[in-house]
Design a protein around this nucleic acid. Structure first.
Lengths: 255, 255
DNA sequence: CGACTTATTGATGCACTTCAAGCGACGTGG
DNA sequence: CCACGTCGCTTGAAGTGCATCAATAAGTCG
């Protein structure tokens, strides 16, 4: 069941053989429970393992010399935290939990070993990173080009889509354990202004937040408002990108 | 010599075998010349090939419905433009030249084929993407957390390091073919403000720009001013990350 | 040379920040 | 059980960094 989380994640990108799958089973050591607001790994640490979030919320962030924090990614259940472990001798950023989490640690030596001999698994890991990169690009556009209200609306849309993709949204509602300070550090805004933007989105009857649950009242309205285009998340493409890739791969093998 | 550009790039990440190298040689078709301010590929296109820039400057950008452009990456000679081709059925962004360029096109089917059977090459591609991702994260911090003057100073530092890494900087000078409009669309600022920031950096005697060449007059001053920490570029780590990885890999194979 | 893009500067306006203060929820110790 | 401190949310008032508008100068290219 724990293994399933890993293989399911990777199989959303690439068809794996039974051999691949059994190789993956050896990767998973055991699940670890971590409290809220705890760092899984800190800037400056030598990374020892890749983290897979089974349950709970976490984020990737950097802290500037003046203490200013910038959150550059959110992790929802099913996400890998730091596949980039491979080029980092020391972490150039930190990863911390938002809520309490269940985390699987995969030692980097295991990843080295498995990728050296399993091309499909390597490609699946690669694809994971490519999706992260696509999200990062959209975040850059979001902060650089949209004004504050659309910016936060866009984040809310993204989180809804991502929660929905892993079955964690119902009736356009999802867990929203982030403080307004978290959102501020994500969007490059002040806490005060985030508060006003959320008030505005409530006034427009696009969303409500109650007891750490966010409900989107008017999806079409919200999407239209921030001109949300979900293609960058590459959620639907995966399965058929998979098929398409298999087809191309077969052709390549024949040719 | 053209092939060299490709293998040299990848070998900065991962040691390749002779077999790997000869497989890579078959990838390169021929060099293409492209004029300045021309799109190599546009948002919405079906990607056919991966582009490697041999000479010239290019960028990755997105355009919002209201016409607002946001540049999310710059490419200098030796950079891959779009390894992310694999998860995209249609491009979610465009890639355009800044100056005239010499470009190598590598068909995606070739990449599919080679990665299916050459794990080291796959990992090298993956690593390329991981470095791009690290840069993207720092850009997000830059736009989200630094104010305009430090923000642009930071970009100038990054470009100096990257030019230097491929031997295209001398005496702290490098080609700077970007317009102030380009910089504005990169940093999420207005053209007018970019102009004022550059004036300020000149007044502080940190930089000069003459005839599309940027000279950093006071490197230490400039780095200190924007608190530039080059670790995110992962320039020096590569060679010894390589060795380290090989060692880990050997251990893994033995164990 | 003339047309067009890019750089530069001034004046004005607004989006967002900072400062400040009150409020409710929560946990902890007496 | 209540007192009290802490943390997150909320709102008002004042300040500022950057945008927008506008106009001129300086490249740049056919």
């Amino acid at each position: 069941m724990i293994q399933n989380a890993l293989t399911r994640k990777l199989e959303s990108f690439e068809t794996l053989s039974d051999l691949d799958r059994s190789a993956l089973d050896t990767l998973v050591d055991k699940v670890r429970k971590v409290g809220p607001r705890v760092d899984l790994i800190r800037e400056g640490d030598e990374p020892e393992s890749v983290h897979l979030i089974l349950d709970g919320y976490a984020c990737r962030y950097k802290v500037l010399p003046d203490g200013q924090r910038e959150i550059v990614a959110y992790f929802v259940p099913g996400d890998f935290c730091d596949l980039n472990v491979f080029i980092l001798d020391r972490m150039d950023h930190s990863i911390g939990t938002i809520t309490k989490c269940q985390v699987v640690d995969i030692p980097r030596t295991s990843i080295d070993k498995i990728t050296a001999s399993h091309p499909r698994i390597t490609r699946a890991f690669w694809w994971c990173g490519l999706v992260d990169e696509a999200v990062l690009r959209e975040w850059l556009v979001n902060i650089g080009a949209r004004e504050s209200t659309e910016r936060i609306a866009h984040l809310i849309c993204e989180l809804l889509m991502r929660h929905d993709a892993v079955g964690l949204a119902s009736d356009n509602s999802y867990a929203f354990p982030f403080t307004q300070g978290d959102i501020a550090d994500t969007m490059g805004l002040s806490v005060v202004h985030v508060n006003r933007v959320l008030r505005e989105l409530r006034r427009m009857e696009l969303i409500t937040i109650r007891r750490r649950v966010l409900t989107v009242l008017d999806i079409d309205g919200l999407k239209a408002f921030c001109r949300f285009n979900p293609s960058y998340l590459h959620l639907e493409n995966r399965r058929w990108a998979d098929l398409r890739c298999a087809a191309r791969h077969d052709r390549a093998m024949q040719g």
